[in-house]
Each structure stands twice: as C-alpha cells, then as structure tokens.
Amino acid sequence: MSESTALEYLRVTDLHAFYGESHILHGIDFTVYRGELVTLLGRNGAGRTTTLKSILGLVGRRNGSIMVNGREVIQWPTHRIARLGVGYCPEERGIFSSLTTEENLTLPPRLTSEGMSLDEIYSMFPNLKERRRSQGTRLSGGEQQMLAMARILHTGARLLLLDEISEGLAPVIVQKLSEVILRLKDRGFTIVLVEQNFRFASTLADRMYVVERGRIAAEVRKDEINEKQQLLEELLGI
C-alpha cells in the first residue's frame, strides 16, 4: 500500500445516489485523510446529507466507489460499514424516546476498544451527567445534540460523520460544540462535518468542499479561504 492510501481514511469516487426515480448525487468525488476535519458546505438540497447517508448505505440505491480505511464498501450493508469504526450523527439527532439519557448513551455496542468511557464522556459533557436519568427526548435541543455525539464517541468509532450539528442551536451552545470538535480533533478523530453555518465550519475545517447539485463544485483548503472568498460567496450565497 502506498503512503498516500495508508493515510486516506475515506475516499469517495464518482458516487451516484437515487431515491426512487430521483437522481440526487451525480458523481461526488472527495477524500478525507486520517485525523483530518473536512466540511461539506452547500445550499439546502445540494446533496450534502445524501452524501453522508450514502457513505453508510442509507439511501435507496447508490453506485460508484466508497473506500473506508482501504476497503471498498459500496456493496456492504449499513451495519458492516459501521463496524469498520464509522459513527453517524443524523441531522434529526435520533434520540430514542423510550430510553433514558444514559441508556441512549450506552445503547450502541462498542465497535473498537478505543471508545471513551462514561467518565470521560461525562467530563466532556457535564450536562448529560446531571440529566442521565431523564428520558432522552426531554433534554434541550443542545443537550440532545451533545447526547447524539457522545453516543458515537462511546462506541469507539474513529470516523465521525456529523450532519448539521449546529443547526437551530443558540450561539453559546454552538461555541461549546466548536470546543468539543477541536478536542476530538486533538484526540485524532477523523471528522466529516456537513454544515450550513459557514463561520462555524470555517473555523474548524482543514478543508472544505462545496456541494452543488449533487457534485463537488469547489475544494478550499484552510489557507485558501481568503483568496477564494469570492468563489465561496457565489456558491453559498452568503
């Protein structure tokens, strides 16, 4: 295996995805290196969420190539892909109402031995500790978002797919999420972040991809943000 593929954690090539008759992704190509934080930016309906879902096989039909940690998974069922150490935090957060906070947290089985312990998680998210006996869906929006993230940290997933985690949250909570994400990066997690909030994304990301009509329209490295400002504004309408 060459040096570059050894460092690659996720490589998506010519990915097409369909919901029933509608063709949503038209050949997405991007790569995420180990320990990197990459954001997928774009307008609503551009295909960012569908891209994340396709990586885990959660769309109706897909083709192309998805390599996770050097393995081709395009034909694999969702649960096998997850067991490679992929954690997914859905846009709607997916907190189970029939379970308490702590039951939500400990529900997913451990995928690797590297998962954070409950103590570590509670020190990162003190609110969750206070409310660990509450019904999961009784938590505030911000707490539910923390819970949805904490849940995949507990499993030992190394590649985190996070969908719109800052959406609908107060600025102070978004600030807190940024801190959490930076700590996760320090711990070596590889993160793909789908975002609407450009400021939130641009302070965190090593690289940004702009998705437009089911294709990658631009790639912007952290050090290029200023020189490509105009392009970004055009594409994102900001």
Partner: peptide, 22 residues
C-alpha cells in the same frame, strides 16, 4: 431488548450502530 425497542423507533439509526437489524 434495548436494541429491539430502539429499532422499533428508528431501525436505520440502530443499523448505523453496527447492529444487523434485518
């Protein structure tokens, strides 16, 4: 049983945890 109850609510999400829901 917790997997079962959770899968009743949201089978797709439970499958993303690595559980063979089918």
């Amino acid at each position: 049983g917790a997997y079962l109850r959770a899968a009743t609510e949201n089978p797709q999400l439970v499958q993303t945890f690595g559980i063979n829901v089918p």
